[in-house]
Structure formats: C-alpha cells, structure tokens
Design a protein around this nucleic acid. Structure first.
Length: 597
RNA sequence: GGUCCCGUAGCUCAGCUGGAUAGAGCAACGCCCUUCUAAGGCGUGGGUCAUGGGUUCGAAUCCCGUCGGGAUCACCA
C-alpha cells in the first residue's frame, strides 16, 4: 500500500473513533504539503469538519493528536486553516527508499503470459512523400504510448498501416514516368522517399499550370481541376492499378520499394519500430467485400450511379461514401478492411489509432460503421487524437516550402548536440564512436522531449531554435542529471564503497531528502495514470520535477565527501534510485539516457 | 451554419477527479566554478488564469452564455 492510501485509511479510522462518522477512504483528500509549510503530507479537513460539527482547526488538532498518539509513522502535526500537515518519521521514508532501491523494475509491471492485447496503430505514412514534423509527433506519441501500456501490463502490438495505394501515389508515378528520365535513388544519390516526394511536387506544379491554362480558356476552377489532362491521366492510372495492369504494378512496386528503404532509415534513426505492418493494397479488397456485405444486409445502400453510401443521419452525422461509382474504394473502405484483418490476426482487446485530430470525424464514423457491420469492438476503438504542429511563422505548407523534413531535423539536432558538447569540452576524453553515440542520444532526446512534454490534444508550436536549447525543461537537462549521478556512482565504486546492503533506518534526514523519496514513491502511480490517460506528457513533466528537485539536492551536498558513513550511504542510495527512475521514465518516452555526457 | 478542440507571464508550456500566496523554462537583470560534470545552482522583476454569470465554505479547475483561434462537415488520403 502506498503512502497516500495508508494515510487515507489512518485518517478514516481516526475520524471513526473520534466522531463515529464513516467516511469512504477515497473521499479523504490527500496532497503533498506545500514547501512553505512544515510537514510531508497534508489532509484537507473541510469535507468532514462539517460532518463532525467542529471547526476545521478544532477537528484538525484532535485528529492530529490522535494519529500521532496511535500511529508510529507520523511524528508530529500542525494545523493551518483547514489543512492538517503531518510529518512522517524518517524511518518510514528510509524503509520506503530501501524498497524502491531493491526493486529493479520499480514502477513497471512485467509482462505476463495471460495479459490482454492492445494494438496500437501509429505512423501510417503515405508513400508519396518523406516523413515530416507532423509524423514525428505521431511516431513519438505512438511509440511512447506503446511503452507506457507495456509498463502497465498490456501485451502490445505496434502496427503501421502503410497507405501504399491511391491517387496520391499515382501522381508521383505519373510525374516520374513523364519527367523522370529514369532517375533512381542510386543514380541521384537521393533517399528513396525524398526522390518520390520530389516527383509528387513535380506533378503538383504541372497540374497547377494546367488548371491555370484551362481557367484562362474560360473554365471555372472546379471544372479545370476535374478536367486537367494530368489528373485524368492519374485517375486512369489508379484504375489500371486496380485492374492489375502489369506495367503500372511494376512501376508501383519499384517506387514503393524506394520509399520503404527511405522510411526504414528514418524509423531507425527515430528509434521507433513495428511488430506488424499492414499495407492498404492488401486490405482494401477486404474492405470492399465488407462494404458489399453491408449492402446485402441493408446497412448501406447503393445509388443509381452504383456508388455505395452509409446513411448516418440517425447518428446525427451525414451520409458517407464507401465505394465510388467506378467501384474503387475510398479511405474509409480501407480502414474497415484493415480493422477486420487485424482482429482476425490478433486477439485484440483494445484497438488504439494514433491519428491527428483533423480525423476526429473519420474515426467517429469508422466506429459507427464497424458497429453496423456487426463488430462488437467497433464501439470501443480509441482514437488517440493529437493536435497539429505549427511553426512560429504559422502552419507548415508544402506549397510554400515551409515543411520541416524529419530526416533533416534529426540530423540538425544531432549536429547541434555534438557541437555543444565540443564547445563545453564535455567529451574531450571520449572515443569518436562514443561521442557520436552521445550526440545522437542527446540531440534526439532534446527533440523527443520537446514534443512529448506537451499535452497531445493541444496544437503545439515548434520553434526549431528553442528545441535545440539544452537548458531548462529539456530532455538533455534530464539526461545530464542522470549522467552526473552515474559519475558519482562510478566514483563510489572506485572508492569501493558498497551501498547495496540496505539502510540503517535510524538516520535523521532532512525535509528536502524526504521530499525526494516522496517524489520517487509517486512514480508507479504516475505510470499508471499515464496509461489510463494515454499521456506521455504526464511522465515527461514528472521527470522534470524529480530532476529539478534532485539538482537542488545535488547542489547542497557533497555526497562522496560526507564523513558520516551512514549518511553517505543514504545519499548514494537516494541518488541511485533517482537515476533508476529517470532512466525508466525516459525509456517510457523512448528517450535513451547516456551514462556520461 | 452544425459538431468537436483550444484560450494561464512578452514567448513556449505545467497545474484542471474543486483546496493554502497560480508554477516552470526561455527572454531581461544581479550573484555562484581551488567544492563528486556550470548542459548547473541562487536571487529580482513579470499574471483581472480570454470575458460575463452560476454552483460552493472555497473556482484557473465544474456548469451556462459571449468573444477570439483551430479542426471538421470531400467521389483527398
């Protein structure tokens, strides 16, 4: 039982004995005592002072006295306004620290065979262009959520649905065919995804020029968009693809292979991975047949032009297209097929889609459609919706060239980390490989932490300059603290100080120290809450608070020069425990922590 | 127009299952490297928590209205 629950039940019993009132233990409000008051933990008295027909101060004094007299873990108390501040005995804190120190997997549940399976879909790229800043937020959130759910005892399957077919790919293919002169990643030296992306832009430019020309001839913009030769050609290509045209399929496979090689590099650099990848080219047919089943069962209906629709007006939504008049499938059709395959492949208890908030409506509809098709799990799907990433100048717009490329950004972060280390002379005695590895951990740590510390629901502003700042509430600050603790522990080992035996619980410790232990002991609860809330930000902000607190402590004490052996041991154990929690927490965010930096 | 999300310091963000004087970082200014890593610590200034009501002993937090910003309501994915 953790400290909070223990105090709750102690207070409930006191109130029962003193006033003969029954209170739900969960109704007793407990909080950490604010720094400006004496004590460790605070009970809010208002709720039951009234029931006891006492003033909050009077009830607080009586309860405080009773607890101190009857419970050995509380040494003293004070009452200020309606708050009862309790001081916990050092021996309790020391026992707590001993147990944290002894638990190698503190805060994390180990996987068990009979755990339920949660599938988490994230990334979900289109194969017509490279990954950008928006994908980075997606990938980092998806990976971190997977780690957090594992730590909460779920069996997690990370999955990616690659959008490898559709009109967007055909645009790149067509442009390459018309203007590419046989260019390949090998011949151009470009990363495959960047090369294909280049032709997507080429298409867009040429298409725009055609639209402009047609409008000058008197067409409306809408007509021009529909009748430009390039778009007609691309649509023809999509149809040819669906009809298994050998040449189109061949080109499609070649260009997608380039893109996958490029994506693999990006994912590897980012440190994310997947257990199972689905391709829409392999799932859309299932989607089609599911939609046809829906028509047969009268869940959906077919119009005169033979397009298929779902009528969702009963659910307060509009009508939704599921198959075009030419029989080709749309985004929604594919997601239906993918969902079916996934549930066939895995025993999924919970399905989570990490997809941007611009698709809130899509997932609302998907949930209803799956339900209409008779899938019990349709209603329960979770759309983990996150906000857009904006730049200080505004939104990213590919047309205006303000898209931040994922590969470029990661390289820049790593370079900056390396330069900063060099300037500070931090890594003067390190081998080149070690410098590289640390620069990578720190640069990517800065990027990941910068993005994950923000509440996912909110749109966030990404300032490239600020993200590279390594001061303040940043990943490197946390990594740095870890590295310094490790340095102290290395030196302790050199001096052959053994501090693993467990602590003498009669030590006297300061309030700052007991506060640190209290923070540490809160870690499992934070992990649990991050799991139910799907919130990496919760972990990130906890880590910062812990590290900030520890840094003040670190500044005040010279651990290895402490003469009192017992105190030295205690501070080493405390430091080691902080380092362990830092590391575990950062792992849940997908951030590596270096041993030195 | 309908639906959903957001609005906290000059900037970027915490805090939101209601609790004590609303917190960090950046930016500005002033201190601290003969002291285990200064990517650090300490200090000063900076706020009508968009706004108006309501509920409550108590509201940044819950409810309603208003204003401002964003998303979506596609035979794009």
């Amino acid at each position: 039982m953790n400290l909070e629950a223990t105090i709750q039940s102690v207070v409930a019993q006191s109130v029962k004995t003193l006033y003969n009132i029954d209170i739900e233990t969960s109704q007793i409000q407990i909080q950490k005592t604010k720094k400006e008051f004496e004590g460790d933990i605070t009970v809010v008295l208002f709720p039951f002072a009234k029931a006891a027909r006492k003033s909050p101060e009077g009830a607080g004094a009586e309860i405080g006295e009773f607890i101190v007299a009857n419970n050995t873990m509380v040494s003293k108390f004070n009452v200020i306004k309606g708050f009862l501040n309790l001081s916990i005995t050092p021996s309790y804190w020391l026992e707590l620290l001993n147990s944290i120190n002894a638990d190698e997997y503190f805060g994390v549940k180990l996987p068990s065979e009979d755990a339920d399976t949660m599938m988490i879909e994230y990334s979900s790229p289109n194969t017509n262009k490279p990954l950008h800043l928006g994908h980075i937020r997606n990938n980092l959130l998806g990976f971190s959520i997977a780690e957090i759910q594992k730590a909460n005892g779920w069996k997690v399957v990370k999955t990616n649905i690659v959008n490898d077919r559709g009109i967007h790919i055909c645009k790149s293919m067509l442009a390459w065919k018309l203007f590419g002169n046989g260019e390949t990643p090998q011949s151009s030296g470009m990363k495959g995804d960047h090369l294909v992306g280049k032709y997507y832009v080429v298409f867009d430019k040429a298409y725009k020029a055609e639209i402009k020309a047609l409008m000058e001839k008197g067409m409306t913009e809408e007509e021009a968009k529909k009748n430009a030769p390039l778009i007609l050609e691309a649509q023809k290509m999509l149809l040819a693809w669906e009809n298994n045209d050998a040449e189109v399929r061949q080109l499609w496979e070649t260009m997608n292979a380039w893109v996958y090689a490029g994506f693999d590099e990006t994912y590897k650099q980012m440190g994310v991975d997947f257990d199972k990848i689905y391709y829409e080219s392999q799932t859309y047919l299932t989607g089609k047949s599911e939609v046809e089943r829906g028509v047969a069962e009268k869940s959906f209906y077919q119009r005169d032009d033979s397009s298929v629709w779902a009528d969702l007006t009963a659910d307060g939504l509009d009508e939704k297209l599921l198959l075009r008049a030419d029989g080709t499938s749309v985004y929604m059709t594919q997601d239906i097929g993918t969902a079916k395959l996934r549930y066939n492949d895995f025993d999924i208890r919970k399905m989570v889609y990490v997809v941007g908030n611009e698709q809130n409506y899509h997932f609302q509809v998907l949930s209803i459609l799956l339900d209409k098709l008779g899938y019990a799990w349709g209603k329960d799907l979770v759309h983990f919706s996150y906000g857009m990433v904006e730049l200080p100048e505004g939104k990213m717009k590919s047309r205006e060239g303000t898209v931040v490329d994922a590969d470029d950004l990661m390289t820049e972060m790593i370079n900056t980390a390396r330069e900063t280390s060099m300037e500070l002379g931090k890594l003067d005695n390190c081998a080149p490989e070690e410098i590289e590895s640390i620069a990578r951990m720190v640069g990517l740590g800065a990027l990941k932490y910068f993005i994950l510390k923000v509440d996912p629901r909110k749109n966030m502003t990404f300032n490239p300059k600020e993200s590279i700042d390594f001061n303040g509430n940043t990943g490197p600050f946390i990594q740095y603290t870890h590295a310094r603790i490790k340095s102290v522990l290395r030196k302790a080992a050199e001096q052959e100080i053994n501090f693993d035996a467990g602590l003498n619980t009669s030590l006297v410790i300061s309030e700052k120290e007991s506060y640190l232990i209290q923070l540490l002991s809160a870690f499992p609860a934070v992990v649990k809450e991050a799991g139910t809330e799907f919130s990496p930000a919760l972990i990130a902000n906890y880590e910062y608070e812990l590290v900030k607190e520890f840094n003040q402590f670190y500044h005040d004490f010279s651990i290895l020069k402490e003469e009192d052996e017992a105190l030295k041991q205690f501070r080493l154990v405390l430091s080691a425990s902080v380092a362990k929690v830092i590391k575990t927490g950062m792992q849940l965010l997908g951030i590596e922590v270096p041993e030195r930096m």
